[in-house]
Computed example of a mutant assay.
Amino acid sequence: EGPVVLFDYFSCEHLSDHSGVVDEVRPAVSWMYLYSGELTDEKVRRWGGGIAELVAEHGGGNRRIAVDHINPEGVEELARRGISVGNGEAVMENARLIKSPDEILAMRRSIVACEAAMGEMEAALKPGISENELWAELHRGNIARGGEWIETRLLSSGPRTNPWFQECSSRVVKNGDLVAFDTDLIGPYGFCADLSRTWLCGDRPPSNEQRDLFRIAADQIAHNTDLLRPGISFRDLVERSAVPPDDCYPTRYGVLYHGVGLADEYPTLPHSGDWTADTPDGVLEPGMVLCVESYIGRLGGREGVKIEEQILINETGNAKLSAYKLDERLL
C-alpha cells in the first residue's frame, strides 16, 4: 500500500508508467567508479541529496533506511545528511527464508532444466573428454533451457577429486576415473539448482575403495535428509546428523546444510564439531529449502565423492526436489 518509487540504476529515460502502479520515476545517480571516475565524490553528494529527498517525502519522519550492499562513501554521505543505514541484507535473507508456492514451482522448473543438462553431461562422459569439455555441457544445457548463469567451476576427475573444491581443468578423464561436480547454477526464472553427483567414467568396474567412499556419502545424505522436518532446531539437527568417518573428517565439506533460493542463502549449518558460540540457531519451518551436503575423501587418499540434494521442508516432513539418480554402479 502507498506510493511506489521506481529507480533504474543507469537511466530512467526509457521508463514510463502505463499501469498506474508507479507514482514517481526519477533517474538514479550512478557513482560506480566505472562511470564516475574522478567525479565520484560529486556524484555521491548528488545521489545522497536524492535519497534524502525521498526519505523526507515518504519516510513519515523516519530517518533510517536499509540497504543490502553500499560502499563506504555512500554511508558517510547519508550520515552527513542525518540518515542512518541498516543492514538490508539481513532483512532480505530472512524474507527469502520461506518460499511461496510460486517460488517453489519456479525452483522445480530450474531443477528440471538442470537435471536435463546433467543427463547430457552424463551421455557425453567418455574416456578422453576433458573436464572443461564436460563442464561446458552443463552450461550449454542450462542456457538452452532459459537458465541464466553458473557461479562455480566445481568439476574434477580422478586424483583431482581429493581434496574437494578444485575447479575443472584441461585434464583428460580416463577410464575408471570418478568424476564429481556441483552444479551451482541459476536456472530458469532466476532460481538456484544446487546439486552434486559423482559418476564413474567408462566401462571399468569400480574399485572397492570407490564403492566404499560412495556408500559412505550416500548413507550420510540419506540419514541427514530423513532428519529434516518442521520444528527441529538448527542445533538439534546438526547434533543428530551423520558426519564423515575419522579418516575422512579432516577433508569434510564445509557445511552439512545450507539454505537455497535465488542463490545459496541463510542458514548455513556446520558440522557439530564446528558449532561455536558464534553460530546462529533457529528452527526449520515449512517452505524452507535446504541443500544436504556430503563430501567423502580420505585424508591423503586418491579420490573423493561429492553428493548433494535439494530438499523442501513441508508440513509433515520434507520433499526431495532433486531427482537425478545416483550412479548405480557405485552403490
Results as ranks from 00 to 15, higher is better:
301 G>V: 04
137 E>R: 12
271 H>M: 05
155 L>G: 08
239 E>G: 00
58 H>M: 11
308 E>L: 07
79 A>R: 10
197 R>C: 06
135 W>C: 03
3 P>Y: 01
75 V>Q: 06
291 C>A: 15
330 L>P: 02
4 V>T: 10
146 G>L: 14
166 Q>H: 15
144 A>C: 09
127 P>H: 11
213 L>K: 03
142 N>C: 10
56 A>Q: 09
35 Y>M: 12
301 G>S: 10
154 L>D: 15
258 H>Y: 06
268 T>A: 11
204 R>G: 05
285 E>W: 03
241 S>P: 07
6 L>K: 06
59 G>D: 02
276 T>R: 13
200 L>F: 02
80 R>N: 05
37 G>R: 09
245 P>E: 09
57 E>W: 04
37 G>S: 03
120 E>V: 05
71 N>P: 00
219 D>K: 12
268 T>Y: 13
173 V>M: 13
244 P>L: 08
300 G>H: 00
213 L>D: 03
22 V>Y: 08
162 N>I: 02
3 P>Q: 04
163 P>A: 13
106 A>L: 04
318 N>H: 13
288 M>L: 09
129 I>P: 01
134 L>F: 06
95 A>T: 12
267 P>A: 04
27 P>R: 12
174 K>G: 13
307 I>C: 02
73 E>N: 05
3 P>M: 06
20 G>A: 08
100 S>E: 11
313 I>H: 05
118 M>H: 03
17 D>I: 08
269 L>E: 03
35 Y>K: 08
126 K>H: 05
36 S>L: 02
35 Y>H: 14
61 G>D: 02
307 I>M: 08
315 E>P: 01
180 A>V: 03
149 W>K: 15
294 S>H: 05
321 L>R: 01
254 G>R: 04
60 G>F: 02
86 G>R: 04
26 R>Q: 15
36 S>Q: 07
176 G>A: 11
59 G>P: 02
17 D>V: 14
200 L>H: 02
109 R>V: 13
13 E>S: 13
320 K>R: 12
113 A>D: 06
10 F>D: 07
256 L>G: 06
171 R>C: 14
289 V>M: 02
173 V>I: 15
189 Y>V: 04
181 F>D: 06
241 S>G: 06
82 G>C: 09
25 V>R: 13
311 I>W: 01
270 P>Y: 02
298 R>V: 12
311 I>F: 00
189 Y>P: 01
220 Q>P: 00
287 G>I: 07
204 R>I: 03
173 V>S: 08
260 V>H: 02
38 E>T: 12
108 R>W: 07
296 I>A: 08
144 A>T: 07
193 A>N: 07
236 D>M: 00
48 G>C: 09
156 S>E: 04
266 Y>L: 13
121 M>V: 14
36 S>N: 05
161 T>G: 07
247 D>R: 10
126 K>V: 13
130 S>C: 12
46 R>I: 14
34 L>A: 07
189 Y>F: 14
74 G>D: 01
219 D>P: 00
244 P>K: 04
293 E>Y: 12
135 W>G: 06
